[in-house]
C-alpha cells in the first residue's frame, strides 16, 4: 500500500495524542501546567485528525463521514474522536481553572480515547483484501503505541517502561507473523483469475503500459527491500531509546528525549506498516505472495 504522508501523520499523531489525553483524563494536572499539558494532548490529536483530511479528494464534504457509523469504521472513528474530545473538554477546564468537578468526564474521556484508537486501527484491520493488516495484531499494536506514547510523553518511567516492553513484543509479533499472512489468506493468481483449474498462471501482457491509480495506491513495493532496516530503526527509536531515556535520564529532559525518539520510531513503524502491506489486487498484475 502507498505510504501516504497524510495517513502516516494522522495515525501517529492522533494515536499519541489520544494516548496522552487518556492519561490526562485519568490523572489530570492543575493550573497553567495543566493547561499546557491538555493543550499538548489536544494539539496532537487534532493535528492528526486534520492531517487525515489532506488524504481526501473532496474534503469539503467531510461532515458526511459522520453518517454511516452503523457499518463504517472510518465513520465510527470520526464519531469516537469528536465525542472523546468533547467529553474531555469540561475535565480540561476543571483541571485548569480548579473547578473541582471530579474525574467523571476524564474517566469517560479516557475510555473514549481507547475506543477512538481502536476504531482507527479497525479501518485497516477490517480489510480482508490486505491480509497483513487483517489480524488482531493491528489493533493491538495501535493501542500499544497510544498507551506507550502517552506514558513516554508524560515522562512516566514506572508505567512507561512496561508499556514500551509490551509495545516492543507486539511489534515483533506483528512483523514475525506478517510475512506469511498473505500466503495464509489463500489468494493467488490462480484464485484471482479462476484459471488455476487449467494450470499455473503468469502475466503474458499487462492491461496498460502506463501506471494507474491501482498501481500507485495499492501495488507500492519500493520500501519492501528496506524492511529489515526500517524495522530496526522503528524498534530502536520507538522502544529502546525511550526506555533508556526514561530509565537513566533525570528530570523533565527524560520525557522530551524519550518522546522525540518515540515519535520518530512511530513514524518509521507506520511508514513500514503501509509500505510493506500487499493488497490482493496485485495478483492481477502478477505480484505473487512473498
Amino acid at each position: 500500500m502507498h505510504p501516504a504522508p497524510s495517513v502516516i501523520v494522522f495515525t501517529v499523531l492522533s494515536g499519541m495524542g489520544f494516548g496522552f489525553l487518556a492519561l490526562m483524563g485519568l490523572f489530570g494536572a492543575s493550573g497553567w501546567t495543566g493547561f499546557a499539558l491538555w493543550a499538548l494532548g489536544y494539539g496532537l490529536a487534532v493535528a492528526g485528525l486534520v492531517a487525515s483530511t489532506f488524504h481526501l479528494g473532496n474534503p469539503q464534504r467531510a461532515l458526511l463521514a459522520f453518517t454511516q457509523w452503523r457499518t463504517s469504521w472510518l465513520s465510527r472513528e470520526g464519531w469516537a474522536s469528536v465525542v472523546t474530545l468533547g467529553l474531555l473538554a469540561p475535565q480540561a477546564l476543571s483541571d485548569w481553572l480548579g473547578f473541582g468537578w471530579g474525574r467523571g468526564f476524564g474517566i469517560a474521556g479516557a475510555v473514549g480515547c481507547v475506543a477512538t484508537v481502536f476504531c482507527t486501527s479497525m479501518i485497516y484491520a477490517q480489510l480482508r483484501s490486505v491480509p497483513r493488516w487483517h489480524h488482531w495484531t493491528t489493533p493491538a499494536v495501535f493501542l500499544a503505541f497510544a498507551v506507550a506514547g502517552g506514558l513516554v510523553l508524560a515522562g512516566n518511567a514506572v508505567f512507561g517502561l512496561p508499556a514500551l516492553c509490551v509495545l516492543g513484543v507486539l511489534m515483533a509479533v506483528q512483523w514475525q507473523g506478517g510475512a506469511g499472512r498473505f500466503a495464509a489468506a489463500g489468494s493467488s493468481m490462480e484464485t484471482a483469475t479462476g484459471l488455476g483449474r487449467i494450470g499455473r498462471v503468469s502475466v503474458f501482457e499487462q492491461p496498460h503500459t502506463g501506471g494507474n491509480y491501482l498501481m500507485r495506491e495499492m501495488i507500492f513495493s519500493v520500501g519492501r527491500k528496506h524492511a529489515a532496516r526500517v524495522r530496526m530503526i522503528a524498534m530502536v527509536a520507538a522502544v529502546m531509546l525511550p526506555a533508556l531515556a526514561l530509565a537513566f535520564v533525570p528530570g523533565p529532559a527524560a520525557g522530551v528525549l524519550a518522546a522525540g525518539a518515540h515519535l520518530l520510531g512511530a513514524l518509521a513503524h507506520r511508514w513500514l506498516f503501509f509500505a510493506e502491506a500487499e493488497h490482493v489486487v496485485g495478483l492481477y498484475y502478477g505480484r505473487r505472495a512473498g
Binding site: L56, N58, R61, L64, L74, I123, E217, V281
Partner: peptide, 14 residues
C-alpha cells in the same frame, strides 16, 4: 463521495 479511497482499498478486485 469525499474521495477517501477506502472503498478501493476494500475491493479485492481493483
Amino acid at each position: 463521495c469525499i474521495g477517501c479511497g477506502l472503498c478501493a482499498w476494500a475491493c479485492p478486485y481493483g
